[in-house]
Design a protein around this nucleic acid. Structure first.
Lengths: 192, 192
DNA sequence: TTGTTTACATACAATCTGTATGTTTTTCAC
DNA sequence: GTGAAAAACATACAGATTGTATGTAAACAA
């Protein structure tokens, strides 16, 4: 059975990304060795280094994949709503759901900033989940003005921390309430 | 010149912590090799592994040192005030000042969670800077009730993100304003 | 069909980590 | 003060890892 080059590449890359994801989640980036990854993906290290510049590049591919998945989940669930506040509530709920996928908080919020650097990691976030939040806040808080960007950033951090806490076993309801209080307080306060 | 064992230990440990700090800040934990650290500290690897169980233990010592320094700075600057809100404002300003020490955001907020794990890292925070914040919030928001812990956690995350953004070049004033708005909104909102 | 490019496979060099095993100072009991 | 014991290193080593260099086979293009 002969595969075209495009097929081979696609399948090999995907196998590496899948295996990498599993192992990075399970043991973290630093403790996962490339021989282990390629064994799980049923390829050789030669294939890995042919398709990715180095181990970090594979990790980056995994991260971009995950970030995209989260964004899509959020947008799908907040799209049905028109009112800014309803969109934000639905979006935040979708965010928490999406982040419950095995190990996502670890990958996106803990490992990625350390491995890719805070700037690269922030850039990936900014063009994904954070973009949705920013749009929602802009609609809900037209009076925010120059503070929109900082507020988006701070609230995004709050969401992230909540996701980590929930994954660590905290009561999700409490954190969703706290987020809602934060948002409503903001809306109240800026409206004067 | 003969040193007592206590002196020897103290000096060697400190030299390792200082050198480690410098290199971990400069190149990150993963890219810093122990031969490099001991060379900078003018000791041998034998000394390193005599005083610390492994490379991670040295890193943990560095982190605990930094976290303590931040806490002390915050407490020193918020102690003079009595009113909760004034304490929080002074404390947050002190926090940003303290976090401007070269590389502290990288060490405490980026590397530590990845190297020590989010739980260990959170535990260190909880008994340091976050404890002060929690006390301040409890005084400022007596009606928070069961939401005090989650709110503390979320606001702490906001502070951290702000520190990272400021280190990355963002306008500090904007972020301090945004934090103030968040806090005041919270106070407003919970007061009904 | 044949030359070239792509997609791997294998072998290798350079490091790095933690450990095991020496050696030299302190310390402590007498 | 001295000798034993423990602490504080120093050195050597085993195992493992990363990225690269080089070799091969399969697809593609002319």
């Amino acid at each position: 059975m002969s595969r075209s080059n495009r097929e081979r590449t696609e399948q090999t890359r995907q196998a590496l990304i899948d295996a990498g994801r599993r192992l990075f989640v399970e043991k973290g980036y630093a403790e996962t060795a490339t021989p282990e990854i390629v064994a799980a993906a049923r390829v050789t290290r030669g294939a890995l280094y042919h398709h990715f510049e180095d181990k970090r590049a594979l990790f980056r591919a995994v991260i971009e994949c995950e970030a995209r998945a989260v964004t899509e989940a959020i947008e799908a669930r907040s799209a049905p709503y028109a009112a800014p506040r309803a969109m934000l509530i639905a979006g935040s709920s979708a965010y928490f759901d999406a982040m419950m996928a095995q190990g996502r908080t670890r990958l996106l919020l803990i490992e990625a900033p350390a491995v890719l650097g805070p700037l690269a990691s922030a850039a990936i976030d900014a063009e994904n989940a954070e973009a949705t939040l920013r749009a929602g806040l802009a609609a809900m808080l037209p009076e925010a003005g120059a503070m929109l960007a900082p507020l988006t950033s701070l609230l995004s951090a709050a969401f992230d921390r909540a996701a980590i806490a929930i994954e660590a076993g905290a009561e999700r309801r409490h954190y969703e309430q706290a987020i809602a209080v934060l948002l409503d307080g903001l809306a109240d306060h800026l409206r004067r």
